[in-house]
Design a protein around this nucleic acid. Structure first.
Length: 266
DNA sequence: AAATTTGCCAACCGCGGCCCG
DNA sequence: TCGGGCCGCGGTTGGCAAATT
């Protein structure tokens, strides 16, 4: 017998969450806590299944989420943990307070895997890929520490414009295209710079008018992409929270009002 | 400037494990 | 002990934005 769906799916909404839905879910959880995800959407007045609510809360609305780019140190730590734990993202995420397994998984699939391939490392085994050794005289850089490797890449980018490594899915191919070498080096380096500069770009700061939140968070950095004005009502998803206490007690939210407002920080 | 490709990430899907009656 | 129900996890997809042609 087949497994029953987690909830009655007919008539339930799917796809991206609206700000109003976020408000409903946040307010419900902050006021009532989480006892059973199955009943959360019903009690919160949401046309979503409990699973969708859980995912939305865990991956996006939780106030203790640490948003923003991953640092070199975090990348190194993820690689290290992945070599020990494999694709057990929840286990890996448990070593990064404020990071979700989904976030780390996405980061792994979009960034770290590419970096490792650039470095001649197999993302699955963390061992050096030896497929290029019989191709040409290309160089293979296999340094476990990502920071060190980036520096070495930087130091080598001014070398003669042969020995360019162009990556494919299975093997590394050497060409003599100097233009492509420059772009590859630039790409790898720019990625590192962008991560670090993410924080510098958050020059605007705001605070939450709710006294409950003000007592919890001294500063809340405004996402560079958001465009809310003073007094706007927004959802937590728009915030890059600067949390000093990762183990935040939920009791502190007990008196939070139904709506949160923003005002410009003095 | 328009069309196409690529990258990113939020959200969904389905399975496995755990809990409880 | 067994079966049903729920939760959590990992793989995958879809859509949007940015980059490239």
């Amino acid at each position: 017998m087949g497994r029953k769906p987690c909830c009655e799916k007919i008539g339930l909404k799917r796809g991206p969450w609206t700000i109003e839905e976020d408000h409903r879910l946040i307010n419900f959880i902050l006021n009532n806590g989480i006892h059973c995800w199955r009943v959360v959407p019903k009690l919160a007045g949401l046309l979503r299944c409990g699973k969708s609510c859980r995912l939305r809360w865990i991956n996006y609305l939780r106030p203790d989420l640490k948003r923003g780019g991953f640092t070199d140190a975090e990348d190194d730590r993820i690689m290290e943990l992945h070599s020990q734990l494999g694709n057990r993202w929840s286990k890996i995420a448990s070593h990064f307070p404020g990071r979700t397994d989904n976030e780390i998984k996405n980061h792994w699939n979009t960034k770290i895997k590419k970096k490792m391939k650039h470095l001649g490392l197999d993302p699955a085994t963390h061992e050096a890929m030896d497929s290029i050794t019989d191709q040409t005289e290309s160089k293979q850089i296999t340094i476990p520490n990502m920071c060190t490797t980036i520096k070495e890449k930087e130091e080598t980018k001014d070398q003669p414009k042969d020995d360019v490594i162009i990556e494919t899915s299975k093997t590394l191919i050497v060409t003599n295209n100097g233009k492509e070498q420059a772009e590859n080096s630039k790409s790898l380096y720019a990625e590192e710079v962008d991560i670090g500069s993410l924080f510098e770009m958050q020059d605007k700061e705001i605070s939450i008018s709710s006294s409950s939140f003000s007592s919890l968070y001294s500063n809340i950095s405004r996402s560079e992409s958001s465009s809310y004005l003073a007094g706007d009502s927004i959802s937590l998803e728009q915030w890059d929270l600067d949390i000093t206490d990762p183990l935040m007690p939920w009791d502190l939210f007990a008196n939070l009002g139904d709506t949160l407002f923003l005002y410009d920080k003095m």
